[in-house]
Design a protein around this nucleic acid. Sequence first.
DNA 1: CTGAAAGCGCTTACAG
DNA 2: CTGAAAGCGCTTACAG
Lengths: 356, 356
Amino acid sequence: MKSRSTSFDIAYRAGVSQATVSRALRGSPLVNEETRRRVQAIAKELNYTVDKHASGLRRQRATTLALLLFEDPTSDDSLINPFFLSMLGSITRAAARQGYDLLVSFQQSSDDWHADYQDSHKADGLILLGYGDYLVSRGRLERLVEQGTHFVRWGAVVDGQPGVSIGCDNRQGGTAAGAHLLAQGRRRIGFLGTASPHCPEFFDRYAGYCAALQAADCAVDERLQIDAADSTELVGYTAMRELLARDARIDAVFAASDLLAIGALRALAEAGRRVPDDVAVIGFDDIPMARLTTPPLTTVLQDTKRAGELLVSTLLAQIRGETAASCMLPATLVIRRSCGAAPDADDPAPHAAPAA
Amino acid sequence: MKSRSTSFDIAYRAGVSQATVSRALRGSPLVNEETRRRVQAIAKELNYTVDKHASGLRRQRATTLALLLFEDPTSDDSLINPFFLSMLGSITRAAARQGYDLLVSFQQSSDDWHADYQDSHKADGLILLGYGDYLVSRGRLERLVEQGTHFVRWGAVVDGQPGVSIGCDNRQGGTAAGAHLLAQGRRRIGFLGTASPHCPEFFDRYAGYCAALQAADCAVDERLQIDAADSTELVGYTAMRELLARDARIDAVFAASDLLAIGALRALAEAGRRVPDDVAVIGFDDIPMARLTTPPLTTVLQDTKRAGELLVSTLLAQIRGETAASCMLPATLVIRRSCGAAPDADDPAPHAAPAA
DNA sequence: CTGAAAGCGCTTACAG
DNA sequence: CTGAAAGCGCTTACAG
C-alpha cells in the first residue's frame, strides 16, 4: 500500500510545474496539447486521482448531490416504497452521467433535514423525495428557499409552492384511469387516497378522476372516496374494507398508488369479490410488483427514468445559477388484467403472458 | 443568501482563537467547559457547520462510505432486486448512526469499479453489493486488497477469498428449507439456481439442500437442479418450465431466491399445478413481495437490518486499522402457505391474514 | 503557453 | 487551558 501521489509527483516526472499539471488534467485550453498528453499519460501510470477535498475546498463546490428520502414513519425499515427505489436508481445514474457523486440519506419527516448539506459543502444541492404531509413540509421548503439552498423536489406541482418541483401529471393520470373504467362500463367507482391539500399528489389524482366522471355525466359520490395518506399495503387493505362497508355495490376502484391497490386486491379476495369480474381495479405508479399480482394490475405509469434525469438536470441548472422551473411529466395508463380490458400487447412478453 | 460563516467568525465573536473554536467543536478535552459552551452557542446561532472539504483535507479522511451496487446487466433499470434495496436502506441508516455519509453508485460488472474512491478521498471505504460471477469479480477483489483499499463485500463467505465478506449462512438456510419440505412429506424436490463456484451463494444453498436430503436418506437427483444465475422473475419462470419438462412428477421446489420463486409460481400456475397441493415452493431472501404472492411464499429470511449494521461496523473497524474478519449471519425459515405447512402465527398480522 | 504564489477553511503539533 | 503557525492538495488570478 504505497501512499497516494499528488499533482507535485506528476509535475516532477513530467518536468512541468504543478500548476500546469492541474490545468492539463482539468482540460484547460491554455495548455499545449503535447504537454497535456504527457501529463495525462503520467497521471494514468501513477494511478493519480484529484483529491476531492483539496479540489472542493479551492473551488468551493462538492460535485456531489444529496438525495434525501423521506420515509413513512409508519412503515417498517424494509418496506420502502418500491417506486422510490426505482427513482433512486434513475437519479443515481443520471447524476453519475453528469459527473456528480450522489449522497443518499433516509430521513424521518421529524428530522432536522434542512441540516446544512450545502453549507458544509457535503453537496451542492438537494433532491427531495417522498410523500409526507405537504402542509407540514411546506415551512421547511420555505426555509430552504430563504437560505438559498439549491433543491428540487419530486411531487405535485402546486401553484405558489416554494422552490422547484418535478412531478408527473397526476390529474391527467387520474382522468385516464377514471375514463378507462367508465369505458369498461363501470359506474360505481371508488377512490382510495386522501383528497386534500395535505396530499397534493393524491388530491390531483382524485381531481382527475372526478373530471373523468363528470365528463361522462356520472355523478361524483363523495362517500366513495376513502382517506389513505400513507402508501402501504395495509392502509390499502383497510381502506378497501371501509369502501365495501360503505357501498357493497361498488364495481370498480381507483387506488392512488400501487401499494394501496395491492392491499385493496387482498381485501377484495377476502370479501369474495372477483377481480375484474365483480370489481375492476386500477393503481398508480407501475412498480415492478404490479405485474405480479393476481390478476396483474392495471396502473398509471410514472416514467422514473425521465423523472430522475429531469430532477438532476433541473438541479444542476439551478446550481449553475440559471432559473429552473417546475415541470410535469406525462402519466401513461398501462392496461393489464385487473381492470377487465384486454391487456395491451405492448406489455413486455414475459410478464404479460397469461398467468392462468 | 448570506455567505456561510467560518470558524474565524465564531472565534471573533467568542473572543477566542480560531484554534480554540475548532477544538471546542470537535469535543477536545483540552478546552474549558465554559469556553466550549460559549463557542457552541455562537456556532449554533450562526448556523455554522464545519466545512467538509477543509476538515477532510486536513484530517485525510472523508467520513464517507461508498456503496457500490452491481446490477445484473440483463435486468432493466427499474428491476433492481428488492433484496438489495432493503440492504441499501439498512446500510444507509447504519452509516448515518456512525456519523458517516453514504455515497451510492450503481455499477455494471464491466465498469472500472476499482476506480479510486479511496485515493481521491471520496470515501474511506467501500461496501460491495450484488451478485455477479464470483470467479470474474475475484480478480478485482484481489486488486483491491493489493491496493490496500478498505472494503467489505456482501456475499458468500468462501475460504481463501480476497478481503472480508459478510453473508448469511446459506448452507444452513438451504438445509432448513430442504428439511422442511421433507417434513411435509415431499420427496421429489427440485432446486432452481446455479450450483457452481461462479455463484457461491447459490452453491451453498444447494449444498445445504443436498445435506438435508442425505440426512433423510433421500437420494439427490442431479437432474432436478436447474441452472439459474441471475435473480429475476423471468429466469425463474424459464427454469421452472425446464424442471417440469425434466420431471413432471416433481412435488416441491426450492428456489435460490424469491425472485426466482416468483417466476416459478407463474410457471406452475400456467402448467396447471396447484401450489402447495401439487407442488410446494420455498424461496430465499424474504423480500416484501414474498408476502403478496398467491399463495404467500415460504422463504428463508436474511436479516438485512443486522447485515447492514455488520457491514458498516466491520468496514469501520478495518478503516480504524483493526483486523476485521468475515462473518456469517443466521438464516431463518419463514413459513407461509406456499410450502403446504400451517403458517407461523408470528408472521405479522396484516400480511399473514388469510388471502382467500 | 507556463510558472510562482496566494489562499480555500480547517486540524494539530508546538510553545507557552 | 489557549494561541500562533504550519500545512493538507489543489485552482486560479497574475505576471511573464
